[in-house]
Design a binder for these strands. Structure first.
Length: 809
RNA sequence: GCGAGAGUGGCGGAACUGGCAGACGCGCUGGACUUAGGAUCCAGUGGGCAACCGUGGGGGUUCGAGUCCCCCCUCUCGCACCA
């Protein structure tokens, strides 16, 4: 090593600029997708490019994915690490509305800014496969997928309630409704409206989406969230004949058929189709008023827990078990969209029914009791726990679980009911009465009905319009653009009308990973050969805020496309790992707290390598951590130390035995940790090795190279610079992860703690392979141990190899 | 309310299937080098004079518990009238 090189100081800005340019020029990150022998596809969640620029959370997410990708690359894989922009959607549009800009003009600027910032982080990206969901080359295929789903009956049109702001004259997303009022017109109450919308039939796949969770390799927290979201319940559907017309039977869903004898009234959702026909003349005004009131209420506050309300319809049904008359009520605590939209109410064993019965003075009859409890003990609240059936005729004394099966079977035998599985998952509403999205590729013709836009006519271009704002006309922005919606029917040629809604952003992001490998193909959505070779994605790393929507939609779409024969797999991501959340100085970053920090200034001040390394060090990657400016100092010192130690190494020298062993151990530990995304402890291990080099050094070439290779995934620029300084002409990322010798990771002599009655009384040095009695003898010979035993007989001896000896006297 | 996760030094955080609590880093203290340093390097650093005590609190299992079991408290994140 020359003197000049030795004296060179670590200058992150210079090193990083040099290598970012070097990688671009050399094409270091490029991978030939057709010929690569060991494909490995890593995916990070593509960002929505906000005008505010890159957020620390983005960089944390990207860096964690990049570390893993670079690690795989060093293991010899051909790593494909693409990037793109999820630039359509309501966020961009709302921001544009706020600043008075047009999203079509604002988005390209935001994307360019994001691209600049992302480049500065030094990710191993394949920019030649970039996608942007707002480009016609991309959304052409989003629309194409829509058409494919439509042709196979998976995209359907039906009515659904939506939030409607009378002031905006437009539909709002749930997040835009604040306590029942419009986010932009604080004094305007949001209403519920029933509109025709496009839905994707995700519920058809509910069971499969659930079943596959048993085998896909995903973070448990994510799988748990999906299970809850899909919400499978087992129960029964039961028919209740109407008292006045036994030929009509009202169907309910219940998970507690065992409590059938305790049903004392029934409740319909206000929107239930039978409400009008069941309402008697006398009750009509009250029922209609109630119905109107709930219909006006916005979707969000309707769901908020509150006092029970409801109205009696005037009609009764017959309990098939007791033959009693049950009054039929309507109440908004019963939801139209779940089960059959009607319930049998068992106040004794359901909290909500109990509350309702209390308010309206309805009878409460107990049918489940614990052993030794009297069947007529009054209840203070609905009891939903286990027990035995009481007041239930021939089913008395049966365990509740057994009773569920027995009563369902008894109902089935009489044609009054049947076992049934329900899911809380709803079909995916993809219609948005908005401007900034891909137009839904459908045409309505008076003669032919719904006609999909022929594939040759795709994309349906989103017209650039001045007037993209929602306004008083009361319809989607595109419905005001006559040149857009007036179109000839593709089937009959008659004048027809285009769909003027755009599709949900989540549709754009539900398939982007399928597009990346084929991003350069203009003629197909996904090249069959590339898709087969690269997909499913090997490792997907992203935030758990997308656990249910994005990740579930992606799984659904993949399943659907698989069933349509378009792709050869049904699960999109072999592995998914959720990273944690970054907080700042102990609190969540938010504008109102004023603790939002931009990655730019840190990268400016410390360099990308220090910044990356710190983010990976500040806490557990999968749990998140606390970002504190002071923490940056430690990792900066570490990189400076690596710089110095590597530059001062003595190429041919034999290193001390301890250092040699320490290096083998570190290689093993860092490899295992990175594999499991335990980045913080991997870095701690490297710091320990650096301390060892300082103490027992200098390092030789092998130790230096190992250290630099291990640092490389985290701090790629400095690693390249040092690699080059060591005389390598090619990129460090074309080198191989260092190998360790297993024997060298195990110490021949180990120190054991010796406990007497649970307290450490001495320490002994023994050979790792010493027999138990040898170890015990050594333990007894220790003076501290000897004193603690004080001549008492030893009742018990435990030897844990490599750990400790425990003696009981 | 339901579901999931977490409470460990002054701080961020380690601790594999129960096995020497506090790795690693920040900060702090002392020292070295310096005209000087908020630069760098070295050493020390849970509490207590000690026996000992220490992982939110209280019980328990065990030779041994941060880790397992029961009860309670606090916080974070999801979902929220799903029958």
């Amino acid at each position: 090593m020359s003197d000049s090189a030795m004296n060179e100081k670590y200058d992150p800005a210079a090193v990083e600029a040099k290598w970012q340019q070097g990688w671009a020029e050399r094409g270091t990150n490029r991978v030939d997708l057709r010929t690569a022998p060991r494909p490995f596809y890593t995916l990070m969640m593509f960002p929505y490019p906000s005008a505010e620029g890159l957020h620390i959370g983005n960089v944390f997410a990207f860096t964690g994915a990049d570390v893993f990708a670079r690690f795989r690359r060093l293991q010899g894989f051909d790593v494909f690490e693409p990037f793109g922009f999820d630039a359509f959607g309501i966020h961009t549009e709302n921001y544009a509305l706020n600043v008075g800009a047009n999203p079509a003009q604002l988005t390209p600027r935001s994307v360019a800014n994001f691209r600049r910032q992302v480049r500065r982080v030094g990710l191993m990206l394949n920019w030649e496969h970039e996608v942007d969901t707002t480009s016609p080359e991309y959304y052409r295929w989003t629309q194409w997928i829509f058409v494919q789903l439509y042709k196979h009956g998976l995209a359907v049109r039906k009515k659904a309630p939506v939030n409607w702001c009378p002031a905006c004259q437009t539909v709002l997303a749930n997040e835009q409704v604040i306590d029942g009022f419009c986010e932009r017109h604080g004094d305007t109450r949001v209403e519920q409206r029933l509109l025709e919308q496009w839905f994707f039939a995700i519920t058809k796949y509910a069971q499969r989406l659930l079943d596959n969770l048993d085998w896909i390799d995903w973070s448990d927290t994510t799988k748990m969230a999906q299970r809850n979201w899909i919400g499978r319940s087992e129960g029964a559907e039961i028919d209740f004949a109407l008292a006045d017309d036994p030929t009509r039977r009202l169907r309910v869903f219940t998970t507690r058929p065992d409590t059938l004898f305790g049903a004392t009234y029934m409740v319909l959702a206000p929107e239930h189709a039978w409400v009008e026909s069941l309402t008697t003349l006398a009750q009509r005004p009250a029922v209609m008023a109630y119905r109107e009131r709930t219909a006006k209420m916005d979707v969000v506050s309707r769901r908020a827990v509150k006092e029970k309300t409801g109205v009696f319809t005037g009609s009764d049904a017959i309990n098939p078990a007791t033959q009693e008359r049950l009054p039929i009520w309507i109440a908004d605590y019963v939801l139209a969209e779940y089960g059959t939209g009607a319930i049998m109410a068992v106040p004794a064993h359901d909290e909500r029914d109990f509350e309702f019965a209390q308010v309206f003075g309805l009878p409460i009859r107990r049918v489940i009791a614990n052993d030794g409890e009297r069947a007529d003990t009054p209840l203070a609240a609905g009891y939903a726990g286990p027990g035995r059936l009481v007041n239930s005729a021939q089913f008395d004394a049966m365990d509740a679980e057994q009773g569920k099966r027995a009563i369902t079977e008894w109902l089935r035998a009489q044609g009054q009911g049947t076992a049934r599985v329900q899911y809380r998952l709803h079909d995916w509403c993809v219609s948005r009465q908005r401007y900034w999205g891909p137009p839904i590729p459908m045409i309505y013709c008076d003669a032919c009905g719904i006609v999909p836009v022929p594939e040759k006519d795709l994309p349906v271009l989103l017209p650039e319009v001045e007037d993209f704002r929602p306004n008083a006309s009361g319809v989607a922005p595109l419905a005001r653009v006559e040149t857009f919606y007036r179109v000839a029917c593709p089937q009959c040629g008659q004048m027809a009308r285009r769909e003027t809604d755009v599709s949900d952003t989540f549709l754009d992001s539900a398939w982007y990973f399928l597009r990346y490998p084929s991003a350069q193909r203009g003629d197909v959505a996904f090249d069959p050969e590339l898709t087969k070779k690269w997909l499913p994605v090997d490792m997907y790393i992203g935030g758990n805020e997308h656990a249910v929507l994005h990740l579930l939609y992606s799984r659904f779409l993949t399943m659907a496309l698989h069933e349509l024969g378009l792709i050869p797999f049904e699960e999109p991501f072999k592995q998914f790992r959720a990273h944690g959340l970054i907080i700042k100085d102990g609190a969540k970053m938010s504008k109102s707290r004023g603790n939002v920090v931009s990655p730019d200034s840190y990268i400016e001040q410390y360099g990308a390598d220090v910044f990356r390394l710190y983010m990976m060090f500040l806490g557990s990657y999968q749990e998140g951590g606390d970002f504190r400016d002071e923490g940056m100092t430690g990792v900066r010192r570490f990189l400076e130390g690596v710089w110095r130690v590597v530059r001062e190494h003595e190429p041919k020298r034999d290193v001390a035995e301890v250092l040699l062993r320490a290096t083998h151990k570190t290689i093993r530990k860092v490899g295992e940790d990175v594999e499991a995304l335990r980045y913080n402890t991997a870095i701690a291990a490297m710091m320990t090795l650096l301390n060892d080099v300082k103490r027992h050094g200098p390092a030789n070439r092998w130790v230096s190279e190992a250290l630099v290779l291990m640092v490389a995934p985290f701090a790629p620029h400095i690693a390249e610079e040092l690699w080059e300084a060591m005389g390598h002409a090619t990129s460090i990322f074309d080198a191989r992860w260092p190998a360790f010798d297993d024997a060298m990771t195990r110490d021949a002599v180990v120190e054991l703690a010796v406990q007497v009655n649970g307290k450490v009384r001495g320490r002994i040095q023994v050979a790792a392979d010493d027999a138990e009695d040898v170890v015990i003898a050594a333990a007894l010979a220790d003076s501290g141990v000897h004193a603690a035993i004080a001549g008492k007989p030893i009742k018990r001896r435990v030897v844990v190899p490599g750990r400790l000896v425990s003696l009981v006297v």
